[in-house]
């Protein structure tokens, strides 16, 4: 991968993180339901695109962790149009996700006599497949994901960087970009085949 494209990925991953703001929720380190970083990264290797490279995947996982720390359960949602009742997000998915991560290790141990992070990506995908299949075909919003693997992938694929990589263009959705240039075809990403 060209160096300039790596730089782009790095900058864009930082942008993904910008939308994850701190809230009153406890940090992962304080929480008993923290997502085990090593297992989460092992999931990332299974569900995130390899073309991101190790650095890009690490940034995507780190952005997810930051997002997850800021998640507030049962938050008031943006009002649906002309609905007089308040609508709330769901209960905290993180304890379930944390339990799933340890479940992955247990299952991997039973199946392959090694932790989830120690087995290869094909084995990890075999373990994850039923959970992902159950969620598909659409990702949905990450906070609604019934499984951590789907939440992680949904968070990445909804990001501006994922859209730009898909199209090979610097679209920069939802980034304040100014009006100038709106009428231009978005510039190709450095090093990307368009």
């Amino acid at each position: 991968m060209a160096e300039s494209r790596r730089t782009f990925l790095k900058q864009s991953a930082a942008t993904v993180a910008v939308v994850s703001l701190p809230s009153c929720a406890p940090t992962a380190a304080e929480s008993p339901d923290a997502l085990v970083p090593a297992t989460l990264r092992a999931v990332g290797e299974a569900v995130l695109p390899e073309e991101l490279g190790a650095d890009g995947r690490e940034r995507a996982v780190a952005a997810f962790e930051l997002w997850s720390e800021g998640l507030e359960p049962v938050a008031e949602m943006a009002h649906p149009y002309l609905v007089p009742e308040t609508v709330f997000t769901g209960p905290d998915p993180r304890p379930g996700w944390a339990a799933q991560l340890s479940g992955l290790d247990i299952e991997s141990g039973k199946r392959f006599a090694a932790s989830f992070g120690e087995v290869g990506v094909p084995e990890r995908r075999r373990i994850l497949e039923p959970h992902v299949r159950r969620a598909g075909p659409d990702f949905g919003r990450p906070e609604n994901a019934a499984h951590i693997a789907v939440a992680l992938a949904a968070h990445f694929f909804a990001s501006p960087i994922a859209t730009d990589l898909c199209y090979g263009r610097a679209i920069a959705k939802q980034q304040c970009r100014g009006l100038a240039g709106a009428g231009d075809e978005p510039a190709p990403l450095p090093g990307a085949a368009s």
Binding site: V18, L21, E76, V83, P84, T86
Partner: peptide, 27 residues
Amino acid sequence: ARMLAYGENPYPNDHIPGQTGTGEMYQ
């Protein structure tokens, strides 16, 4: 940023609990 990240209402405290009706209305 929180609306984008979590779908939260970007206008906190913009309604009065219990002051609502039935049918298509703004909250």
